[in-house]
C-alpha cells in the first residue's frame, strides 16, 4: 500500500508526523509530507492508518502502491 498527503488540504496540524514519525516528516512551515516512496506495510501501514484517522483536514489517503 502507498500513503499520500494532499498538500492542498494539509494545514499543518501535525498529527501525522507526531503519531507516525517513521512515515511522515514536516517542512519548515510545519506541513506534513510522506517520507521516502510512501510504500507502507505491516507496522508502518498501521501507523499510516492511525495518522489518516486523526488528520482533521482529511488530507491523508492510503491506496494501492
Amino acid at each position: 500500500m502507498k500513503v499520500f498527503i494532499d498538500a492542498q488540504r494539509c494545514q499543518g496540524h501535525g498529527r501525522c508526523f507526531s503519531l507516525a514519525p517513521s512515515v511522515f516528516g514536516f517542512d519548515d512551515l510545519g506541513n506534513g509530507h510522506v517520507l521516502g516512496d510512501g510504500v507502507v506495510e505491516g507496522e508502518s501501514l498501521a501507523l499510516a492508518r492511525l495518522a489518516e484517522a486523526n488528520c482533521p483536514e482529511h488530507a491523508i489517503s492510503i491506496g494501492e502502491s
Partner: peptide, 14 residues
Amino acid sequence: RENRHLAFGLGIHR
C-alpha cells in the same frame, strides 16, 4: 485512538 478534533480550528486559519 481516532480523534479528528477541531481544537485548533480547521482550514487556512489553523
